[in-house]
């Protein structure tokens, strides 16, 4: 079971990461949810005692026969924290959509690089004399097409 749990944690985590590095904002958030799920799974698995529900009076009579209540409490806390932060993330991506009019990270990255380069050109006029350094934003845009 140790291996099974480890594998499950790894697969959920990996899938989450795969989604986090996608271009679609919504997928990124889904990825974060998966990653946090893997953490909760791991926490509960870490108390892999599979005993009785920790409600007194216990059938075995002592604490050792119950499933670990502390990991459950920890998992609960972690679950609630990550899910509420997900709500924040969702409103963030909505704001990103509103300000950039896109759900595509590539578009947002291009916008970001453009701003950075505009700033650079403003602060260091000498750069414009150096045409070999083409803007990185163009490159990225090309790549994302």
């Amino acid at each position: 079971m140790i291996l099974a749990f480890s594998l499950a944690v790894a697969v959920v985590f990996g899938s989450g990461v795969f989604l986090v590095i996608q271009r679609d904002l919504l997928r990124v958030v889904v990825g974060i949810v998966l990653i946090s799920n893997s953490a909760s799974l791991f926490i509960v698995a870490a108390g892999l005692t599979r005993g009785a529900v920790p409600i007194v009076p216990l059938p075995g009579g002592d604490g050792a026969s119950a499933s670990d209540p502390l990991v459950q409490a920890m998992a609960l806390t972690a679950l609630i924290i990550t899910s509420s932060v997900t709500a924040l993330l969702l409103s963030l991506i909505y704001r990103l959509y509103v300000s950039h009019d896109t759900m595509d990270i590539e578009d947002i990255s291009v916008a970001e690089l453009r701003e950075a380069e505009a700033l650079e050109r403003k602060n260091r006029p000498e750069i414009e004399e150096n045409p070999e350094k083409g803007p990185a934003a163009e490159e990225l845009e090309e790549r994302s097409r």
């Binding site: 509103v98 300000s99 009019d101 701003e115 505009a118 700033l119 403003k122």
Partner: peptide, 12 residues
């Protein structure tokens, strides 16, 4: 309006 003020580097 929904998009808020746009960034304008050149104008500053």
């Amino acid at each position: 309006e929904a998009t808020g003020p746009e960034f304008d580097a050149s104008a500053g």
